[in-house]
Each structure stands twice: as C-alpha cells, then as structure tokens.
Amino acid sequence: MDTPMDTQTTGGPSSLGTRIRHRRQALGLSPAEVAERAGLTADRIKQIETRPFALTGAELLRLAHALDATIEELTGPRHPAGAHQPPIDPVLEPMRREECIVLIRSGSVGRIAYAGIDEVVVIPVNYCYRDELIVFRTAADSAVAQFDLEPVAFELDLFDEGMQDGWSVLVNGMVRPATEAETAAARGRVDPWAGGTRDTYMVVDPRRITGRRIRSW
C-alpha cells in the first residue's frame, strides 16, 4: 500500500509526482504495472512519485498514455490564452547529488572531455557506474589511455527538443587506469559501440557531481 507523503516536505515529491501517484492509485495500478505500460522501470516510477526528479517530455507522454490521462491532467491546467497572468517560462533547476548519481547509474553513454596535445577533446564513451566510479573502455593507444590521475570532465544528458526540456549531469574528477580488480568487476558490463580492440579499462574517480534540469511546465 502506498504511504501518503507531504508534498511540501524538503526532498519529497513534486506536485506532478503526486498527481501521477494519485492517478495510478485511482486506476488501481501498481508501480510495476505503470512501468510496464510506460516502458520504464518500477524504480523510476517510484522515484517520480516520491522524490524530486528530472522528467523529460517523452517520459511524460509515456506516463500520460499509461495512465489514460492527458498531459494537462497530469501537469495541471495552464492559464487560458489572453488571461492576465504572467507567462509560463521554462524553469532551470539544480539537481541534488543523489539524483545525479541515479541518472549516472541508469545510463550507459556519456562524454569524456580532456586536454589533448593542442586542444580540448570531447568523445562519447560507453560506461558503467560501479562502486562510485565511472568505468569505460578505450584503445590502448588512445590519448586518454595514457592518462594517470589527470583531471577530466564526464557529462551525460537527455533532452526532448519537442518539449524543450531535459537534464544534464556533469562529473569533474580524475582519470586513471583501472586496477585489475576494477577491470574484472566491469568486464562484461561495458561494450563499446565503436567496436574494434578497446581492451584498456579506465576509471573516472568523481570529485564533484552536479546536475541541472530544465522543465517547460
């Protein structure tokens, strides 16, 4: 049984999360059933219903369909055209470290930015998050494979151009070769899309994790 939560409590659900939970309960659905309908995970549904979150337009459309509701029913009515109300502008909000880590853990593709010989280099990488470390694979002769305790930035994001919303997470830390134990733990969990021989495992040890979300409602 769901336990009602105070939507005004710091760290509690947003008003949208509360409306989603109420709609689900009204339909007699479990989080797992809504997750299956929406093509999301049950953990993601629970996160949306109980904590502040970054929800994209695509996820909102899926949830509206899964809950047999309109987007307006979930987000709340907007002011009618011509009404003397301030315009609704997109809202840019910082994300808590805990929410950033959830997004990192659930992702598999990010970007590594590092200082090359003559310029800053940004490359996409497949990765996994394990034991508070970001692990990725690269070719033994790549520039980043030669780094050992060098500063880098790691970034991942998700944007919906139609809804003009999304989120981004930035990790600042040090990159180094993975230890034998870290390599063994990550083996089979990181499969580079680029193919080829990429058997060098590298680790980003986070020093600072920040995130932002932009919402259009």
Rank of each mutant, 00 (worst) to 15 (best):
Y114I: 10
R24F: 02
A26N: 13
G17S: 07
D205N: 08
I214P: 02
L40M: 05
L61Q: 10
G76R: 07
R213F: 02
M5V: 13
P124G: 01
P206Y: 13
E150W: 13
E180K: 10
R198F: 03
R187H: 10
Q25D: 15
D6W: 11
A83Q: 03
S168C: 07
A38Y: 00
R111H: 06
D157I: 03
F53T: 11
T3E: 15
Y114M: 07
G28K: 02
M1A: 14
I123D: 01
L133F: 02
G110N: 07
L40N: 00
I45A: 09
V171C: 08
R44H: 12
A139F: 00
L29Y: 01
F154H: 09
D165V: 09
I117A: 15
T50P: 00
D165T: 12
I71G: 08
A113N: 06
G28I: 06
G17N: 08
R189W: 10
T183F: 05
R130A: 09
G39I: 04
P124Q: 09
Q85R: 11
R62T: 03
A113G: 13
D2F: 10
R111K: 12
A64Q: 00
A186F: 04
R97F: 10
P177V: 11
P151M: 13
R105L: 04
I20T: 02
H84T: 15
E73T: 05
R97Y: 11
N126R: 03
T9K: 14
R208C: 12
G196S: 12
A145N: 04
I112M: 15
A69H: 00
D2N: 14
T200N: 07
R189V: 05
T56E: 03
H65I: 09
F147P: 04
A186N: 09
S168D: 11
E49L: 08
T70K: 07
S106F: 06
V109Y: 10
A83S: 11
D118F: 11
F53Y: 14
E59T: 13
T210S: 14
M95A: 13
W217T: 10
V175M: 12
T7G: 15
A32H: 09
Q25N: 14
R213N: 07
R189T: 06
F136Q: 01
M163P: 04
V204T: 04
L61F: 05
E161S: 15
F147R: 06
D131E: 04
A153G: 13
L60Y: 00
Y129F: 14
V190C: 03
T75R: 05
I20S: 00
E36V: 08
M174Y: 09
K46P: 00
G82W: 02
R189F: 08
R97H: 15
P206F: 06
G76N: 11
A83N: 01
V171K: 11
R44Y: 12
R37W: 03
A26Q: 13
F136H: 03
I123M: 06
H79K: 15
G116V: 07
V190R: 03
L74D: 05
I104M: 09
C100D: 09
S106W: 05
H84C: 08
I104W: 02
I20E: 04
A42T: 14
H79E: 15
V152A: 11
